[in-house]
Amino acid sequence: MNRLPAAGYRLPFVFIVVLGIGSLAFDLTLSARLPSDGDWAEAAAALRANTQPGDAVQIWPVWAERARSFVDTMPVLAEEDPIGADYAGVRRLWVLSLPRTPFFSLPDLANRGATPASGERRFGALALRAWDLHAPAIAADLTASAEQHEVDYVARRCVRVPIGAHFAVRGAAGTALHVRAGVIGERAYDNGRPPVEVRVVVDGTPLVELAVPRAERDGTGWRKADVPLPPGAPDRDFEFFVSSPDAGRPFCLAAWTTR
C-alpha cells in the first residue's frame, strides 16, 4: 500500500484552516463593503442638489430601504424588476445601489431603452447614477392616488376598488391607455379563487378586458393591459368595471394615458 507523502496528510487540516480564515476574513470585512450613515447622507445631499420634476430613486438591491431615512426630495422606489417596471410618470431614474454587497447584480436599464443621464458617482459603498427612461409623457393619471398598496410585493400607487364596484373618471385621452390591476397582499395567492375581471369602457364603448387570475408564482400578480386609444375627443370618460364571483379580496387598480 502506498503511503501518502506527509503533505497529503496535512491537506484536510490546511483546507479547514484556510476555510476558517477565509470565512472570518469575509465576515470581518463585510462592514467595509456597506455604506455608513455618512455615505447615505452624502448620496441624499447629491440627490437634493440635482432634483428635477419627474425624478425618482430606485434602490438596488431592493432591500436597501434604509435609503428612505435619508432621501427626502424624491420618491424612493423598490421595484423588483427594473427592466419591466412601469415607472409611470418618472422621467429620470436615479439608481442608488450597494455594488459591493454579496451576489450584487444590477439589471442593465439599457435593456428597457433607458440611457445614462449621468456618470456613476460613488459615496463610499454607495453608487449613484441617473438614467433617462425616455418614457412617453403622461397625458392623464386617471387613478391619481396618493395611496400606495402592495401588490406582488411592490408598493404601488393605485386605488382600491371593491370587487363588484366600478371606478369612473374623465381625463385626457392621449394615444394609449395603460391599465394595471392586482389583488392586494397575500390574498392574491388564495387557492381556488376565481379570477377578477376588469372591463374598461371609454365614452360608453368597451375597449379592453383585463383578467387577474389567482397569482400562482411571485411576480405574476400585477396584471397589465396597454392598448391604443382610437381617435376621438381629447378628453374622454373612462369607466373600469371590476367583477368576480369572489368579492372578498382587496383589489387595486391603476390607469393612465400617455401622449
Binding site: 463585510l30 432591500w63 454587497t101 454579496p102 450584487f104
Partner: peptide, 14 residues
Amino acid sequence: YGELAGDVPGAATL
C-alpha cells in the same frame, strides 16, 4: 446567515 449565503446581506439578495 453564514458565509455561504453571503451573511445577512447576501441572504437578503438571495
